[in-house]
Structures are given as C-alpha cells and as structure tokens.
Design a protein around this nucleic acid. Structure first.
Lengths: 369, 369
DNA sequence: CTGAAAGCGCTAACAT
DNA sequence: ATGTTAGCGCTTTCAG
C-alpha cells in the first residue's frame, strides 16, 4: 500500500519511497521561506493575501499535513486532554467522558482516553504517559482507595508536573490530595446524596434499610455510607452492621448478595439502598425472582441516575449526579472556554456539584405485617 | 502552581522559571553522553550495568520525563491509535471502544477517542487531526451514509495517508470504500443478522412484521433491512412499505412511532423488529403503555445485544454482535499482537465477524384472533 | 510583510 | 560499551 506508484509531487528519495512534504517543501514550491509557511499555517501573523494563497496552493498540491509532534516540540502544548477511567462501557464513566470530550473539543483539544480496566495500579502508568505527551490536563475519574502510599505517589506526580509546568492533575469525583498538592478538583456530594436518599426512605417509614454494594475502601462508597449513617442517626437509629453489605459496584454483586439474603428467610429489611444503580438492578432481579413485589414487598433505590434506571420496572428511585457536567467542569478548571465572556473571573481550582434525589416508582412505605 | 519555589535539581534559567530536565541534563549529571541516556531509556542496546544505574539515578534526581513529541519526531511512530465514534455513551460504540482500548494497550499504544456527537461531518476533521498526530491507525466506527462526495473525500484521505505511510484507515462496521482504496475493514454481517432474526420471527408464525427505526440512509440500516426482505421473500411474502418505518437509532423514535401506530387502532402487525435494541426498548414502552402484553399480544425483537436487553421485561430477543471483538480486530489489522505466535501469518486486511440470534422472552407466536 | 537561523528534545548512524 | 553528530519538522526571535 505504501509503495503506491502515483507519486504526487514531493518526489521520492533515492530509495524510491515517498517522503512526506514538510514546511520546507511547501516553502520551496511557493517561493517563500519556511517562516512564512508557518505563518499562514497558524494565521497568527499578518501575511500578504497573495502570498497566502500561493502557499495554500502549494500545500494542497503537495498534500501537506503538519506534524503535530514537531509543532508540540517547537513550543506549543500537546493540545491534548487525558482522561483516566475504570471502564468506558460503564455509563458513569462514559457520561463523564462525554462531558470531557465535548469541552475539550470546544477548547480545541483532542481527548486521550485511558482505561485501567479495573486495575487502579495502572493509573500511575497512565499519568506518566500523559505527562510524557505533554497533555494539558490529566483527569482522574472516580473514587479512590484510602491508600497512603498511593496518595503519596500521586501527589509526587502532581507536584512534578506542576513544577515543570506540565499537565495539571484534575481529580474528578475523588477527594483532594490535600491543600498543598497542586491539583484541581471537581467533586460531587456523596455524603449529601447518601443522606438525602436515606432520608427519603425514612420519610416513607422504612426503618430497616439494607445498604448494598460498593467496594468497601472506595471513597465513593464511604461517602455514601457516611451520609446514610448521618440520616439514620438523626432519627435516632443506630446503623446495624448486618445491614451494611459492601462489595462491588456491579449488578452481579447486587443480585447474588440479595438472593442469598432472601434465601435465608423473611428479610430483616424493608428497603434496599443500592450503592449505585447497577447494584440496585441486581437486587431488583433477585427480589423479582424470589417472587416478591417492588415496591409492595420491598423498596429499592439506586444511585447515579444512569439510563438503566428508566428501563427497570418499576422505574428506579435514585440520586442524580450531573455526570456530563462534571466532565466539562474538569476541563474548565484547566482550559478556559474560548467562547466564554473573556473577562469573567478565572475558575477556582475546586468546585463541588450538587446532586438530588429523583423519586420514581421503586419506593413505597413498607407493608404492615 | 508553576512557580513552586522548591526547585529540585534542574535549576532555573536566569528567568527564575524551572526548566524541564532533558537527556542532556541527565547525561551531564551522570557523566555520560546523551546517546547513552537514550540507550538506557529504550533498553534496546547494551549498556554496562554500572552506567545504567548511574543514569537511572540521575534521572530520578532530576525528575526526568521523556518528551514523547521529541521522541516521535526523531523517528518512531506516534504510538497512538485513534478511534472515531458517534457517541461514547452509546453502548454499541462504548463496547467497540473498549475492544480497541484493550488491544491498543496490548500493543503498547495509547488510545485517542474522538466523538462526532452525531455530526458525520466532523469525521473528516478528526481523521486529519489524527493524521497530523501520526497515529498508527485511524478507526472509523459504525455505519456510513451513502454519499458519493463524502466517500471520495475519505478515500482521498486513505490514499494520502497510505502514500506517506501515515496512519492506516480502518473501517469498523462500515462497508469498504472499494478494492483500490488502501484501508483495512472489520465487518459484521448485518444482512445475515437481519435475515436470521426475521426468519426466527417467521418461524414463530409472524407474517406481518414491523421493521422499526434506523436512519434510512445508513449502511447498517440498509443491511439489516436487506436481510429482512430476503427472509420475507423466501417465504413468498412481499415486503409491505407500510411496515417499514425507518427514522433513527434511539429509544425515543421507537417509542413515539410505536405509540402513534398503536393509537391508530388495532395494529396491522404482530411483531416488531427494532433496528437496534434502543429502538426496541422504546417500542416495548409504548406497547406497555397501550395496555398490551409482550409477547402475548405483540412480539418485539431488537438488534445488537447490549446489556439493556436483559433489563427489560420480558428480556429481549435480539441479534448478538461481537462488539468488543470488532474493536480488537480493528487494531489487529494494523498492529501485531506482541504476545502472539510471532510467525503466525500476517492478518488479512479485511475480516468479517459472525452474528447470531439470541432467543429470549419477547417473541412468541401471535395469538389467533 | 518576509527571510535567516537558532533551537525544541530525542534517536540513530557512525565512530571509537 | 560509549561518544559524536546530524537531523526529525516546526516555531520564533531578530533582522531587514
């Protein structure tokens, strides 16, 4: 394929292999200097109309394509935003990624998506690669585990990158690394959401609520549980450890654990608070298979408000998170929106987005028995 | 942030701004030449153990980070695979993207994800940007519209890129641009799937089948319809134009169109063939709201086999497409798998993956009335 | 408005 | 095993 004989212009070297046109080739063809070519390329400097068209024509004829690497090397940035997620097929990440993509595009950047495929250890490697590529921002998405060593490593990266004015590290949906670590952070209120949802359940007279799923050490899980506990205690209910079954964020965990709990006899709870919507969907399936009705026999609520919540029957009560907006905000922390009021104040380094309960049909007062 | 005073090593120029360490700085600090530093960096050439450690130490102390752009410029490739999709939040694309990501990672590449956000016109711009970045491959995902001018443009890009041995264009789930256009292609059998699913419906005694959704000009839609028609004719049924309602690939279209059709009185069809699972989900909702039962009153089938199909009740009969595998194959067309039998034959430029019907609970013989 | 020339940071011959 | 050196393709002062 590469040895196509229809050589169009640039000429091949002695080797007979086609060579890419460079600014110099264009310059020669147009009878100008490479500097002038660069100027029409970037349109950042006055160039005579006639010259410009001559250069443009030469570019077209030679099939010239700038080399982004040479360009990045010569000065500018990499014009790239990097985003690191767990799994692109999980809507939680996909919607955040979409927000990042949208906003990055507005800012004239391309979006490098890295997936750790569930291995947090790969995060650091990706951070390094993005640093090597001189990305403008490295956005870390989703909760983190409470691991001192890891946090130190990450903080060191953040410092090194800031120090060399490399990429800015942005924490998106993950707690800050501390006030002295140079990062931007986009948070949403897990504690508040956990509180609000639990309060909703309590207001429907539920007193025995099963908190189900979420990796136990993950900041996200911990936040949601913290809010859950606060709401409980506010009504004088001491959290029962047996009603707190953490594990994972997936459907299977929700299904299996609920099934097992239901198999053990009459459930000791009247409502399930799924740590996220997938877990809740699993619980719904197990409940359905056990021949119980939702919300008649058991109430179920989720968290995240992904589209799945509307495909379930009954539709799932959940907590809405502005996922796409979070992604966009992450980029805005670092890159100013070009078509925004240009003398508006520079964005702060950290922002906290609100969440709210979305009431649908999967929660009702428990039946009296 | 960038004016952190704790300068660690490299020293600032007269300007007082920290400067990034380069191979030369490392070389100086380790008392070797830049070539040696490059050698330990790439581990592609023998270097004395003692020297290596000395260099490593210097790198650590200086906080050295290679510049991927300089590296790419100096010879090597961009070490990047680009993928262009419509929408990252659509599972169809997300799963393909995951396959691409996985395989790209195996081949030591990073994955640049570009989303056209539903505007096919942006595809070409992305192709150009990826060319500029010297990606190894540019993977175009999903069906295409039958547009002569556009195809010509794309073919020109493919030729130019091949000619300059730039990125290889890979068509993933989209028809070839012709045998003379240098691209790789990963197909799956839309016609065959449409045939198989329709045949399944026919085998359940359905004779009036509504084909619903899919952008009318899209290759994907056309393929599925073609198979649908072939199956119909094979049983001596002439396709009824009234039973072919194309439009879009989303849930809303499926919902609204089905609702309207049902409002018009007793439906003239006994089964719905949704052009994809989202459309089918919309149809399911409309049918449910009309007070009809699935599959008792009406059967519904989808296409793609995305996870949603298992959240619906009844679970949806559909056609499985190996989405993730398609993404992986797209990368394999271009980049050899490193830990694969190294003397296995080079992969062909085009491959066609199979699909199959997944029978679940949304299809049953029509009730006799 | 345009040109000349000095890098940007790295790799890969070619020497030693 | 290690050093020297010539670029890779572009941008950007600095002159004119």
């Amino acid at each position: 394929m590469a040895t196509d004989r229809t050589d169009e212009g640039v000429g091949m070297g002695e080797s007979g292999r086609p060579r890419r046109a460079t600014v110099l080739d264009v310059a020669k063809a147009a009878g100008v200097s490479s500097a002038t070519v660069s100027r029409v390329l970037n349109a950042n400097y006055p160039v005579a109309e006639a010259t410009r068209t001559r250069v443009q024509k030469a570019m077209d004829e030679l099939g010239y394509v700038v080399n982004a690497h040479a360009r990045a090397l010569a000065g500018a940035t990499g014009r790239t935003v990097g985003i690191i997620v767990n799994d692109v097929t999980d809507p939680f990440y996909a919607y955040i990624a979409r927000g990042v993509e949208r906003q990055a595009t507005r800012a004239g950047r391309l979006c490098l998506v890295c997936s750790t495929q569930g291995e947090p250890a790969r995060e650091l490697a990706f951070v390094d690669m993005l640093h090597e590529r001189r990305a403008d921002a490295v956005i870390l998405v989703g909760g983190s585990y409470d691991n001192k060593g890891y946090a130190t490593e990450l903080a060191a990266r953040a410092r090194a990158m800031a120090h060399q004015d490399g990429p800015t590290l942005v924490l998106c949906g993950r707690p800050s690394l501390g006030p002295d670590v140079p990062t931007a952070v986009v948070e949403y209120d897990n504690e508040g959401g956990g509180f609000a949802l639990t309060d909703h359940l309590l207001s429907q007279e539920h007193r025995r609520i099963l908190f189900l799923g979420g990796p136990p050490g993950l900041s996200t899980t911990r936040g949601r549980i913290a809010g859950h506990h606060r709401a409980l205690r506010l009504r004088g209910i001491e959290p029962d450890p047996l009603l707190q079954q953490t594990g994972a964020f997936n459907r299977r965990f929700g299904y299996e654990r609920t099934r097992d709990l239901l198999k053990a006899g009459r459930p000791s709870f009247t409502a399930v608070f799924g740590a996220n919507d997938h877990v809740a969907a699993g619980a719904v399936q197990a409940i359905e298979e056990a021949g119980l009705r939702i919300p008649g026999d058991l109430s179920v609520a989720g968290y995240d408000n992904v589209p799945l919540t509307r495909d379930l029957r009954p539709q799932l009560t959940t907590v809405h998170i502005p996922l796409e907006e979070m992604g966009a905000e992450a980029v805005r922390r670092v890159l100013r929106d070009p078509d925004e009021d240009s003398n508006s104040p520079a964005p702060g380094r950290t922002v906290r987005l609100g969440t709210h309960v979305v009431v649908r049909d999967s929660v009702a007062p428990p039946s009296r028995r």
